[in-house]
């Protein structure tokens, strides 16, 4: 009897491993091995015909730390994250509060907010190009109505990153809105009634009741917005290609450029490792602080 049970257990284990094999193979090929390989190749110099690759330990990293472009890119990305994360979350929350209140044309409003989410970033960039083109673009034409001079929004370092940021915020706010909307709909109506009975103003109700109840959602969206501030760079390929004078170059774009335009894989690998570290920290923060009862991911 006992023997039969252990045989059954072994059969099950084999069965479990077989089921996992396809996933394990693919995850090893495209996630685990590449991560390790990236770490490995980030410690070797770039091979040329005259100088074969050699082990340089942290050499590529110190090259980057001495490279002003690298620091500019880091600064750009921090700025990009620092504006897009809070701004898109704030707009998402406002959208959700509106879309959840008793307003007219609610269906249209919700659709309008959410639509950018289903468009590819490349298409979004093309749409915005029509806004930003100097002279002919929508923004300049609106400006001209008020007698403002033409501005080359994408062509000057002072405004280019902002132009990029606006496209990102436009793209992701509606996506974040639906999570706020779903959370708002779980808030019981009697809380609002009680607040009204107590004579609380709408602002007090929002600040003291709604916002605290939305906190887990806010954390969830925050983590996603952080990941997006690393990931969302497709529009750079259309709008600025990182220019002018590197003012809109973000880390992932720089990695791409380093590897596929300058063919400098080792430095790209070193940067990749740093990005993975940052993502790891975000993961850890999420793991320790996020309320697990809310949205699973």
């Amino acid at each position: 009897m006992n023997k039969h049970a252990s045989q059954e257990r072994r059969r099950r284990a084999i069965y479990g491993y077989l089921l996992l094999t396809p996933a394990a193979v693919l995850l090893s090929l495209f996630a685990f091995y590449p991560s390790v390989a990236t770490l490995w190749s980030s410690t070797f110099s770039r091979g040329t015909r005259r100088n074969p690759t050699e082990f340089v330990s942290g050499g590529n990293y110190s090259d980057l730390f001495n490279d002003p472009t690298f620091w500019l890119v880091v600064k750009n990305n921090l700025f990009y994250a620092g504006i897009t994360i809070p701004l898109s979350m704030f707009i998402a929350l406002s959208m959700a509060l509106w879309a959840n209140s008793k307003i007219s044309a609610k269906g249209f409003v919700r659709t309008a907010y959410f639509t950018p989410t289903v468009l590819p970033m490349i298409a979004a960039a093309n749409l915005w190009l029509f806004f930003y083109t100097p002279g002919l673009g929508v923004l300049d034409q609106i400006g001209a109505l008020f007698g403002l001079p033409s501005v080359n929004w994408l062509g000057q370092p002072e405004t280019a990153l902002w132009a990029i940021i606006i496209v990102t915020v436009w793209k992701e706010s509606g996506f974040f809105m639906i999570f706020y909307l779903a959370a708002l709909q779980t808030i019981p109506a009697d809380l609002k009634e009680a607040a009204d009975l107590e004579g609380a103003s709408r602002w007090t109700y929002t600040r003291r009741i709604v916002l605290p109840l939305l906190m887990p959602t806010t954390l969830f969206i925050g983590v996603n917005a952080m990941i997006n501030s690393v990931k969302l760079i497709d529009h750079l390929f259309i709008l600025t290609k990182g220019g002018p004078s590197d003012s809109t170059k973000l880390i992932l774009y720089y990695i791409w450029e380093m590897a596929f335009a300058y063919f400098d894989a080792p430095h790209a690998a070193a940067m990749t490792i740093m990005v993975l570290l940052v993502l790891g920290i975000i993961a850890a923060v999420q793991f320790f602080y996020m309320d697990k009862r809310t949205h699973y991911q």
Partner: peptide, 26 residues
Amino acid sequence: SFPGKDFIFILVLLQLFILPEVLIVE
């Protein structure tokens, strides 16, 4: 049920943060 299930599951979840976008070179 099979031995090492929880450990393997954590390994799989790690991939959530290793974005395919970031590993483009390798």
